[in-house]
Design a protein around this nucleic acid. Structure first.
Lengths: 185, 185
DNA sequence: ACACGACTAGACCAATCAGTCTAGCCCCGA
DNA sequence: TCGGGGCTAGACTGATTGGTCTAGTCGTGT
């Protein structure tokens, strides 16, 4: 009971994620998501009863899961935290360049919703925190104490976040690759 | 010939900047800008013939000028770069908390336009670069060589950029205040 | 063979979007 | 006092928005 249904659902999520990264939440129309996914409107509202916001939440979660995977892969074979962080940044730079357009950070795009919408904000907060927590876990595994792991992970992730924005403005991922040099000398 | 006209123009710019920060470029309707500015549509298209995009460019420049001013004030009486950077971060944290809503970084909000729109992206790039250049100048004045000043300024500003995003997700400016501790120990 | 739920399909809607246009106000120089 | 340009004022338009609704298809369990 799933080959067709999950396929449509997944197509909606991945296309929505891609479009939200490119033009933001408000800048992306459902018509475009539908067209790219080759799905009718009825399917969208079947899989995501709350419509656009529902879809955006799912897209953010989907992107976040991919990011967690990248973190794990980057740190898995690293001997030091700095090594893992360097691999992580290089993978992100590659990811940044992979699209034919210069995308925004997947999560920050979602933060641009109305101020009253705490549902979005809370979700984004939770996802960003999970990235930091996952990175910190690798830090502890590589010999840091909890406080140092938390602080370093937070610094790394916020720097990446900012570098991604700069990279978008400059149309160049160089600034992302330079992060490890900046932070770990 | 300006008391009225510049007043209307300024009201449009400042209100547009505030709304773009809150809900982004696409998420802000001209109707709301007009209502908050208590100006009719005709005035907007008189002062900004190209409409919304024109207004956004002006709003970004206006915000950027304010940011340059904050940088100068923060570093003016500082004995070391770290001192100036600390003051800068504390001022920004205060600014972040000053609104009744949690705003986005002024410039990054503008990056969310269509991928083909290089006019926006180039302008944002130029403004962000001017912040970095201004900060680097203070660094050199405080004894850094050019390379160190450039690198440190870039790191500081990209960290602030990312911290601002995190702060928005968390509804707390603490992470902005923690930057100097992270970077300068 | 039948029915039922999951899903697809797209017509349709009110609201809102950015942008255009004409009318008129108001001030200032002649 | 008249004329004209800078500016205000808002009605209006066509396109697009997110969302609703009904009809119908398809697969499956009975």
């Amino acid at each position: 009971m799933k080959t067709q249904s999950t396929s449509t659902r997944d197509r909606l999520i991945s296309n929505a994620a891609r479009l939200f990264r490119r033009t933001g939440y408000h800048g992306t129309g459902l018509a475009q998501v539908l067209a790219d996914s080759k799905s009718p409107k009825g399917s969208l509202y079947h899989h995501f009863p709350d419509g656009k916001s529902d879809l955006a939440m799912a897209a953010a979660s989907w992107v976040s899961a991919g990011m967690i995977r990248i973190i794990d892969v980057s740190f898995k074979d690293a001997d030091t935290f700095a090594d893992g962080a360097t691999t992580f940044c290089y993978k992100l730079a590659k990811l940044f360049e992979s699209g034919d357009d210069w995308q925004a950070c997947p999560i920050s795009a979602m933060l641009f919703d109305g101020p009253g919408n705490d549902k979005f904000r809370d979700h984004a907060d939770q996802l960003l925190t999970s990235w930091s927590a996952q990175t910190a876990e690798h830090g502890r595994r590589l010999g840091m104490d909890r406080a140092e792991a938390d602080a370093t992970s937070e610094l790394l992730l916020m720097t990446i976040q900012g570098a991604w924005t700069l990279a978008r403005a400059r149309k160049s991922a160089d600034v992302i690759r330079r992060i490890p040099v900046h932070l770990f000398g």
